[in-house]
Write a protein that binds this DNA or RNA. Structure first.
Lengths: 327, 327
DNA sequence: CGTTTTTCTGGTATCGCTACCAGCATATGA
DNA sequence: TCATATGCTGGTAGCGATACCAGAAAAACG
């Protein structure tokens, strides 16, 4: 920058201003600076800028798994909004492990991110302390926490699972099995299971633990779970899966076995991915507004960075039942 | 850090050393520093550290689309390796636009990343200049460029598409259609198409442009393309799709229309995602070593950052044909 | 035992930028 | 007309760490 200033015949301060707040600088200076910048291909050092102004333009994001396409659509939307506001995204995955989340949060804070998005609402004590001490705005997402760290943008896993179960009952299904994703350290899975049970209770149906199976997320796990459920309960007429991969795995298994869907058994899923819409038969599911969650999260962060007052808030973006051929 | 030093009764320098190279500091000092650090919950400011040492621990990654799960498995693998080496990942997507890539690369360089991974091998002139001027190690991936910027880790799209086409021919298919992804500004798609044509030429078959359709990546685009190909060529007995979503979309369309796969028409795809393995019928495809690409890219970067000499290199990680039920 | 080497610690000077204040010109008001 | 406001520009002093060098203390050596 020193060089640019010398070659433009102005002071370094003027260069800095010309680049960041062109309006504060006269037309002539701006021209001279721009010319010098172009001539030397100067790239301002944002590290120095951040240090000096103690303001960074990087947002940290922790998701349970980068591989999962559900997070991808949220990440994409958040990324777009942030980029439009001159911010960048640092992404890491916790592998669903609380201790990894802790390490990542502290690394991000050491990196002096200007905001955090955590796709998780259950945190270790140290995470809560670190975040609080840092004063950095934080978004939690993926579930609606009772006691948010700062801001939360999500939908209710409980409500969604409950609504789908009631929906299946309303369609006339009498024996509905539920396949959950692993619930350890995962309040989202736990809430979904609770929602399912709550619906059964409301319907006055017996709560039968053997109607629920836990499965890791994978096509064969879904297939396997369905088969086990049907074997245990020959009268099972609907399967509700907590993840779209499980559901499609089950659907494929039905095709292999020649079980009519929904004639022999109905299938319902969580999350509205393209695959479910195009599968044969198309699959009934819950539309979770992933992109909106990403967008809204980013917007709230941006607003806060622009000086909006810090206030704890929970934004519930809801969900929608998408009734399709499979039920 | 000043505070920590005061409270530990040592100089700031000693604190810095105790944290970064504990071996260079006496047992006693280390204990005092650690105690103070824990007491105050001190997090070193990496921004300041980076500025001072002109060394950062952030790697920039540009993919065409964050949403695409293919990139996700590569990102995950890269992220794991980098994290194990104390590096972080800053991710952005170019939306397949060269001008966006340019903006991102310059933003990353301004951020003083210590390395770059670009999932793309066609760059604007300014990108080449910026990267060269910065001296930052770069990995290009997604294709094997003729003239790599620095290091390239990939497979050959040309070879892969050619091999699959030959494979289908060897299985006895006489009229093989090809559905390509958009080729504009995308050398990967272009290479795949070239590979398909090269195979046909080798087989002594007429090169018929009407056997090739371009489709945006989506289930319905795949379905639509297949139908159009079959309508134009009633004798079409195999469809080779440049993307797994296209292939599955086509497969679903066959199910809807009652076309036996592979009896009426065979289907082959690019990339070995779980979906293709579990679909009914399972889909013949090309296994591209995405995780290996991510891992290897990260390893090369790390090695370079540890002082390995800069040398241009191209690593071809190959591919594999996975023959399944659909062909 | 003196001297050289090794190990450890602390001071000082940046790293490249921005905040903040001071100064000068020009515009605005009475 | 002078006084006050306004707009631009430049100087100085950090931001919070590390690099580098210089001592002091301890260890190793002949």
């Amino acid at each position: 920058m020193r060089d640019i200033a010398r070659h433009a015949g102005v002071s370094p301060m003027t260069v800095s201003r010309a680049l960041r707040q062109p309006s504060k600088v006269s037309e002539e200076m701006r021209r001279k600076v721009d010319a010098a910048v172009r001539e030397f291909g100067y790239l301002p050092n944002r590290i120095a800028g951040s240090l000096s102004s103690s303001r960074s333009n990087v947002v940290g994001l922790v998701v349970p798994s980068i591989r999962n396409s559900l997070y991808a659509s949220m990440i994409q939307a958040a990324s777009d909004v942030l980029r439009a506001n001159g911010l960048h995204l640092m992404i890491a995955d916790s592998g669903h492990r609380l201790e990894d989340e802790e390490a990542l949060v502290s690394a991000f804070l050491a990196q002096r991110v200007c905001g955090l998005i955590l796709h998780n609402t259950v945190h270790s004590k140290r995470v809560r302390k670190l975040v609080e001490a840092s004063g950095v705005p934080v978004i939690e997402t993926g579930n609606l926490p009772d006691d948010p760290l700062d801001m939360a943008v999500s939908y209710s896993n409980f409500d969604a699972a409950r609504a789908m179960t009631l929906h299946l009952a309303r369609l006339g299904y009498r024996r509905i099995g539920f396949v959950t994703l692993p619930v350890r350290d995962n309040d989202r899975s736990e809430e979904r299971r609770r929602g399912y049970f709550a619906a059964l209770a409301e319907l006055g149906r017996p709560v039968d633990d053997t109607l629920v199976l836990e499965a890791a997320g994978g096509f064969s796990e879904g297939a396997d779970a369905l088969v086990r459920l049907v074997n245990a309960h020959p009268d099972l007429d609907a399967g509700f899966f907590a993840g779209e991969v499980l559901a499609v795995g089950a659907l494929f298994e039905c095709q292999r076995r020649g079980w009519a869907v929904p004639g022999r058994i109905a299938i319902a899923s969580f999350d509205d991915v393209d695959l479910l819409r195009h599968a044969v038969p198309s699959v009934t599911t819950l539309r979770i507004p992933r992109p909106e969650i990403g967008r809204r999260s980013a917007e709230l962060l941006v607003r806060r960075l622009q000086g909006a007052p810090a206030e704890r808030l929970k934004v519930d973006l809801g969900f929608e039942i998408v009734q399709r051929e499979s039920s």
